[in-house]
Nucleic acid binder design. Structure first.
Length: 574
RNA sequence: CGGUGAUUGGCGCAGCUUGGUAGCGCACUUGGUUUGGGUCCAAGGGGUCGCAGGUUCAAAUCCUGCAUCACCGACCA
């Protein structure tokens, strides 16, 4: 490609509304332009990268036995009503009507469509297992789109769905997808980790996320410092403290804590560590037969945070988790939040494992401006359950049994699930088994955020001058930068010749044939992140040489014109 | 959804407090100049000041409503 015939569209100024580095650089490098909130147009350079990522994903999926399909983005409401997600999926699902006033949705994911397709096409166990995938645009009406294409509403995703008769077959495909994903991210040249995850709104049981590690990541991941255990923080089990519970030694007493509401206030006032305080949160219980919802008290150590996902999975707790209002709390405790505690409450009380390990601790006294000190389980709070309801924190023992927890941030770029029968059962997708009996299929689903990978790759690979693409996904592998080509026939001829040779060798070359000053060309090629550049100048031409520069390492070398193609090929495949 | 802020040539912004008919930088066009790290000089084109209504002799500026966009928040009692 010649710059004079290309749409480079680089800009010097950083748009004001770009927050993170990948967003800024994608705008500056002329990869994307914002059309509306969470919606982006891809310019040629952006498309080139997107296609390269896509192609690697496609190749690895094919290699792993998946077959490509293409499903509609606009989907009839009936399918979503049939699966039940028309009602459960709320605002994120964009709905609209056609000219006949029929309801449709813009596909945020394709479980319904694929399950419908498969139930029509597949009738016998002999056709299983089957793994179908597509690379397609999704639309999710995010409550807050941000970070450019990282959390956009419209985005490009690879989604695969597998169908099986039985768990063993599902596990086999799941494992194959797991290694296919590792291959994908290895080929992309990214620093990533597979982590244990919750399966969330899509449903199912076993699940892994693939995260690209980056400071700007939206997810926190818990790692063991000695084993290869890694789990999403919302999922990582916080173990009970080891050793015996300290022996109670104090009597229960009331202490005045005027205007001390938060844990840190109380700790400061009473001159104790916040680990000696237990905080009490109130959430709604599951509705009883009359449809009434009582409250449930969740008790956590003062330095810990509630893990909502863990809490809402507990029996008796309403799911999704709903916090009690101030009024509800006052009606129950006769005190406002800040002075409330579990002592004397006649409702279900769930203590976190760490909170349950406390003795002689401090809680709100259910009396405005007062706390109890010297509180002890059993003696003062007899009826309670113990559960893991907190977020794991750095330094906790790892749930795998080896080492301690380190927390890092990651960008979720892949997610694999074992769905089970959630959708196949709802849509009655089954086959005849060996006994000639109808049997519901078991499903798995496997997603890769293609457009998000592009942003994640930039987060991990950039410097002050711009993007530094890994070779595998660079929009161009080589930049040809001639010095004063328009004044020197010799330069023009050599550059033209190199361009022909490199292109013929199947290398993506960007030939900067603009009438620009050298500084402009250097700056642009660095900004868009071309990994290898060749500078053609008069002084080296006398020796039949050109200058090579590596974008990432800064390495410079002189190359003989005669061997440029093979030299470059070696540097690329490296 | 709640809070805060923004909206002025293609992009980034000033002007608004104190109303008087719009300006700067980048980009673009033309001519010259320069040519191994975002040249310099000169001339030029381009704006219903987000939309609607109101106040006024007069509104980018004041008032009201709406729209769009962004940031922060949406467990930590």
């Amino acid at each position: 490609m010649r710059t004079s015939q290309y749409l480079l569209s680089t800009v010097k100024e950083t748009p004001a509304d770009a927050e993170i580095i990948s967003h800024k650089l994608m705008l500056r490098a002329g990869m994307v332009r914002r059309l509306g909130s969470g919606m982006f147009s891809y310019l040629p350079t952006g498309v080139r990268v997107l296609r390269k990522v896509e192609q690697i994903v496609r190749e690895e999926m094919n290699k792993a036995g998946a077959i490509e399909v293409l499903l509609p983005m606009v989907q009839p409401a009936e399918l979503w009503q049939e699966s039940g997600r028309w009602d459960t999926m709320d605002a994120e699902l964009l709905r609209f009507k056609d000219r006949h006033q029929r309801d449709y949705v813009l596909g945020p994911t394709h479980e319904e469509v694929i399950t419908d397709l498969v139930r029509r096409e597949i009738t016998s166990y002999k056709q299983l297992p089957l793994n179908l995938y597509q690379i397609q645009t999704k639309f999710r009406d995010e409550r807050r789109p941000r970070f450019g294409v990282m959390r956009a509403r419209e985005f490009l995703m690879k989604d695969a769905y597998s169908f099986h008769l039985g768990q063993a077959s599902l596990q086999q495909t799941y494992d194959a997808m797991y290694s296919a994903y590792c291959n994908i991210f290895n080929r992309l040249g990214l620093d990533y980790r597979p982590v244990q995850a919750d399966s969330g709104a899509i449903g199912g049981s076993v699940s892994h996320e693939f995260h690209v590690l980056a400071e700007s990541g939206e997810d926190a991941i818990a790692f063991s410092d000695t084993s290869d255990y890694a789990a999403n923080i919302e999922m990582a089990e916080a173990l009970a403290p080891t050793g015996d519970k300290p022996t109670p030694s104090q009597a229960l007493r009331e202490v005045a804590t005027p205007s001390a509401g938060s844990v840190s206030d109380v700790a400061a006032l009473l001159q104790v560590a916040n680990t000696r305080i237990a905080k009490t949160l109130f959430v709604l219980a599951e509705a009883d037969e009359q449809g009434k919802q009582q409250l449930v008290a969740l008790v956590l150590r003062g330095d810990h945070e509630l893990n909502e996902l863990k809490a809402e999975k507990l029996a008796g707790v309403a799911s999704p988790l709903q916090f009690a209002t101030d009024e509800q709390i006052r009606a129950l405790c006769h005190a406002g939040p800040g002075s409330v505690g579990p002592v004397g409450l006649n409702i279900k009380i769930i203590a976190d494992r760490s909170a349950a390990h406390l003795a002689d601790f401090i809680v709100g006294a259910n009396k405005e401006g007062y706390h109890f000190n010297g509180v002890n389980w059993e003696r003062d709070i007899s009826d309670y359950q113990i559960a893991d309801i907190r977020n794991i924190v750095a330094g906790d023992p790892s749930p795998c049994g080896f080492g301690h927890i380190v927390i890092k941030r990651g960008i979720e770029v892949g997610h694999i699930f074992q769905l089970g029968e959630k959708y196949s059962k709802a849509l009655k997708a089954g086959v005849l088994n060996e006994e000639g009996k109808h049997q519901i299929m078991t499903m798995g689903c496997y997603g890769v955020g293609v457009s998000r990978i592009v942003a994640a790759a930039i987060e991990q690979n950039h410097d002050d001058n711009g993007i530094i693409w890994p070779d595998a996904i660079a929009p161009f592998q080589v930049a040809l930068i001639p010095m004063n080509m328009h004044k020197s026939v010799r330069i023009a001829e050599v550059t033209e010749q190199l361009y022909q040779q490199l292109t013929a060798a199947g290398i993506d070359v960007l030939f900067d044939d603009r009438r620009e000053r050298p500084g402009v060309m250097f700056a642009d090629m660095e900004l868009i992140g071309v990994p290898h550049s060749i500078v053609i100048g008069e002084r080296n031409l006398d020796n039949q040489q050109v200058e090579y520069k590596n974008r990432r390492s800064g390495e410079k070398a002189m190359l003989d014109i005669a061997s440029v193609v093979t030299d470059i090929q070696q540097k690329i495949t490296r």
